[in-house]
């Protein structure tokens, strides 16, 4: 188990390095360079005319005149060694400050979504498989088709609309108006949880639809296994039998796709954030892209992806712990 964990850990680090290289390339993609945009931002509206020499000076100051590979190592080195993600041009402060506790909020949304996803999809998927070809089964299949087809921003709008009509409440955002700028406290955390359910449901929607199908399919397979018949032939009571034998194995594919779910959630996050007015990384990422504030965008993309890679690692370890056959294979 220790060796297995170590191997996976090294794999995770390698993937993270490669990802960082890719993210850096994306940061470099927009036409023109930072110096142009930096100068434009710094002096626009001030009436100062910018000369080519000024831009060149900025370029040297920011280290933009160095070759790309060298700048990559500067960038990633600063992140790894000093936790410094560079400058956020639009905010005229460091990226780290801008991201700040938005990363924490994003993590809260992520785990809220994951919890809802698994609490809903696993029991219902198992139920659908046991009651195969029943009315409930067809209903759930139809629902999961819809879940995959309905764009999440549309769902967000629909939920917002009904929340407005029925509760006459503005439930967008992550905090109520009076809590927004308050320092962190228990009351603020409670306020966050009260606001978290809407984005969590919206983001969990398609993940639930997907996992529901996975659980149902595996559970149906497992139900027909000889080991289930054998256990039944030993007189194991039906409910205990279902939980201990097929259901236990039907959870494995769910565990093995945790990283995939996190990926899906983060993928949808920016869009949902726009509609729901969430002030977290997804929304910031979108704003940074629109402003071409590439250090912020790169940092966020990197953070999100690292979180996915890390969850992949966790899922590998969990799976090895759940399924004794994996450890031997190495």
């Amino acid at each position: 188990m220790l060796r297995f964990t170590a191997e996976r850990f090294v794999g995770m680090i390698v993937t993270m390095l490669l990802v960082s290289l890719m993210v850096f390339i994306i940061m470099e993609l927009p036409p023109g360079d930072y110096a142009d945009r930096y100068a434009f931002r710094k002096y626009s509206g001030t009436g100062v005319s910018v000369t080519e020499a000024d831009i060149q000076a900025i370029r040297v100051e920011l280290g933009l005149d160095k070759p790309m590979l060298l700048r990559y190592f500067d960038w990633i080195g600063n992140i790894v060694l000093h936790g410094d993600f560079g400058q956020a041009f639009a905010f005229e402060t460091s990226v780290t400050k801008v991201i700040g506790d938005k990363a924490l909020l994003t993590t809260a949304i992520l785990f809220g979504t994951l919890i809802i996803t698994y609490l809903v999809s696993i029991p219902i998927g198992i139920y659908a498989a046991v009651k195969r070809a029943s009315f409930a089964d067809y209903g759930l299949t139809t629902f999961s088709y819809l879940g995959l087809a309905l764009p999440n921003f549309l769902l967000a709008l629909i939920l917002l609309y009904f929340a407005n009509r029925w509760f006459n409440a503005d439930i967008g955002g992550l905090f109520s108006a009076e809590m927004k700028d308050a320092p962190w406290s228990l009351a603020k955390a409670g306020d966050l949880i009260a606001h978290l359910w809407l984005p969590a449901i919206v983001l969990a929607w398609s993940a639930v639809a997907y996992q529901l199908q996975t659980v149902r399919a595996t559970m149906s397979d497992e139900l027909n296994k000889l080991s289930v018949t054998a256990a039944r032939a030993r007189g194991v009571p039906e409910t205990k039998l279902l939980i201990k034998y097929p259901a236990r194995l039907a959870i494995n594919p769910v565990v093995s796709t945790i990283g995939f779910d996190v990926n899906r959630i983060f993928s949808e996050l920016p869009i949902v954030a726009v509609v729901l007015g969430l002030t977290e990384l997804g929304e910031l990422l979108l704003r940074a892209y629109l402003d071409l504030d590439m250090y912020v965008a790169g940092a966020i993309l990197l953070l999100l992806t690292f979180m996915i890679v890390f969850m992949n690692f966790i899922s590998d370890i969990l799976l090895a712990w759940l399924d004794p056959r994996i450890k031997l294979g190495g």
Partner: peptide, 11 residues
């Protein structure tokens, strides 16, 4: 492993 919509957005 990179979330696809943010990646598309970047491009």
């Amino acid at each position: 492993v990179v979330p696809i919509i943010p990646l598309y957005m970047g491009l």
